[in-house]
Write a protein that binds this DNA or RNA. Structure first.
Lengths: 196, 196, 196, 196
DNA sequence: TATGAATGAGGATTCATTCAT
DNA sequence: CATGAATGAATCCTCATTCAT
């Protein structure tokens, strides 16, 4: 399955972080999980920190690709927004360990100052989309941070509930309700509901 | 300020976790911050873990008291809900270190299995409130988890943005917009907007 | 004998370096030699390197004091020079482990760039003394480095032979011959031999 | 330049030890410097230690050849002695990396007990020469070790100063002064200075 | 109660050496 | 012969906890 040792190490890290938590990750466990000697990890990575950071970057990269899949800016804003939401949920529902890792990484001691805000690569284009929507009066005239949170936080909250086995987010009807609710909470109210 | 040593230790813990992060908390720093010897902490607490857990419980207790302050179940649901939201925001905007601590605690190695979900004491009554509202058709007929997240997650998201200095959540107008939006996203649509 | 743990650690380091060599010094051995736990050394020193450096500085400080004991610049140069030589030899013959440590330290990886030349604190005033002697034509008109080496290197060489048990440098007659020879090799030849 | 891999490895070792120090020599660096794989070194040598020891022996062998070049025991002692000194200096001034290696080797963890005294191959014949000179009253009636050091140590000291860029020992006048001084410090004083 | 020196298990990292290709 | 990925013992250092004073 693994084409090379470097990927094997990253995959073992992901498994271990999901099973025992980032805090409990240590090189001995990692080596055992990967079926390697401790020293082997240091052939491919400079340090434990590097492993975690590379894994994070890999996950963020893949997440971004997934979220912006089939992105077409000329489509109606609602369609675009909901497509992105769906992409996000679909991706993390299929890869719950990615979601969990990102969450844990956000509170790991590695960052602290650099990227206090996770999801950066996703949040940034979203912010631009929202500002464009506000200019066209398609969205409520509220501060961008607020709109961003109204559209985004419930989805993150539902994903957390999903990885904690509190809800079945594979349910497409539930997803649709979620997306629709998120969209409605940011969409301008005088828009013709028939057109959306 | 402190009448007893136990509180002094808990307060010093809170300060340090906010300044340097839960990960970097150690007993030497804690003793120094409190102006005590390391051994003294062990007179009042069994372990470092106990300190953190007791602090967490203290914070949750205070948060709950604050959120349910002036709680009157006989008032209209919207009033009650928004009052709780306001209480929550007011409390954590005044005590950002409490919010930050709870966030960090959620990913600390202490839990992992026990209390995966933070905010427990607050979430539980909220869930009951929501279910009551659904029964009375005051709220949308959606799964409770979804309603909970729609009402709750944007507020948490905004509080995170606040402690990261990305938004001024002391602004009352902004708070009102936030609460109104959260309420609207869960409120039944056929309710007379004049009555709320 | 040891008034405090810090000195105990430094003394144990010295013993171990002399017995097994600086290269083979490790924290486990050091702790065992001192009768302490490994962690204890880190209460008093930041790192293994710090221990070695502090010991070096302590030794150099003591050596300098010993070499310049009873130093009186108004005495004839020969007397001064030979007194210093005697102080040096007396000190290191009584403290052969100090000599050995300094020798090893000079090739340890800790330096490399900083103080390639050991004995700095001793060499510097010596250089000045030599230059003064040259100005007064008491010494041969040769480059200072050469005079320095002629006066100094045989003594170092004899000390090395002594710590390798190749010669008994406690023998005062031998010391006198050494000092006289070193002095003669740098002293101006037209000086009245009766006056020295 | 290299006809065989074994020499290539020894030469690369020498370069690295001079550039970074014996302490920092490791097989990975050595392989890279030689343009070989790590494993290749183990085809030609049993261990890292073997490489260092073989290099040392090679250097000592070459040094001896150089020092005893044109050695003719029937010539006057002074001529012989100064010729050897000159050979020594000429050789190490042309091959400062050899000198540096020998110095570092003397404090490496490889020896410790075996060959505490470096320069063995050179020192031994020198000792015999000195004893012969003493018997013929050409040299001072002093212990051999002392004579050896008087004649030898300043030269070593000057070579050290040379590799530390503190003196230009390629200067032939300086060399002559050095040799003359070393000779004078061991030569019997009643020898007719005109004959040497 | 209060102290803080001492403990030592545990964790990250290095590197000489091996061996399958 | 040549390769270089893999190994794992050895090393430095940290830190929660204890205990004699």
């Amino acid at each position: 399955m693994n084409t090379n040792t470097k990927d094997l190490i990253l995959e073992s890290t992901l498994k271990l972080v999901n099973r025992e938590g980032l805090y409990h990750l240590n090189m001995k466990k990692l080596a055992k999980e990967a079926g390697l000697a401790i020293g082997t990890a240091y052939i491919y990575f400079d340090s434990k920190e590097t492993i975690i950071n590379e894994l994070y970057q890999k996950i963020v990269r893949e997440s971004e690709v997934a979220v912006f899949k089939n992105f077409q800016s000329e489509r109606p804003l609602k369609e675009t927004a909901i497509a992105m939401m769906r992409n996000l949920v679909t991706f993390f529902v299929s890869n719950p360990d990615y979601f969990n890792f990102i969450e844990q990484y956000g509170f790991s001691p590695i960052l602290l100052k650099e990227s206090k805000e996770k999801w950066l690569g996703i949040i940034d284009p979203l912010t631009k989309l929202i500002e464009k929507g506000k200019n066209k009066s398609l969205l409520k005239n509220l501060p961008t941070v607020l709109l961003l949170n109204l559209a985004h936080s419930p989805i993150i909250g539902m994903l957390k509930a999903f990885i904690n086995n509190q809800v079945d987010l594979t349910d497409e009807w539930l997803q649709d309700q979620l997306f629709e609710a998120c969209w409605k909470s940011i969409a301008s109210e005088n828009i013709d509901p028939k057109k959306g």
